[in-house]
Amino acid sequence: MNITDEKQSEVPSNVTDLRDIPLSHVSDIDREGIIRRVLPETLVERVPVARFNSSI
């Protein structure tokens, strides 16, 4: 199997596999990413920073 075949044998998802992560260790990023997939509407205002490139 070459690399391309290998790539094509799986359809990747960006959902981190949390099955083996203890509940108390689920990271904010993983949690937020998944909530965003499930509830896109609830996260629209959640990013607490201005995203303007030329300021911080």
């Binding site: 960006n14 959902v15 965003r36 303007f52």
Partner: peptide, 22 residues
Amino acid sequence: ILRTSRGAPSLTESLGLEPADL
């Protein structure tokens, strides 16, 4: 980059697929 790689929103308009609201 770390956030968007796990499906979370980007913190800057220069990365990610979020619609511009500026």
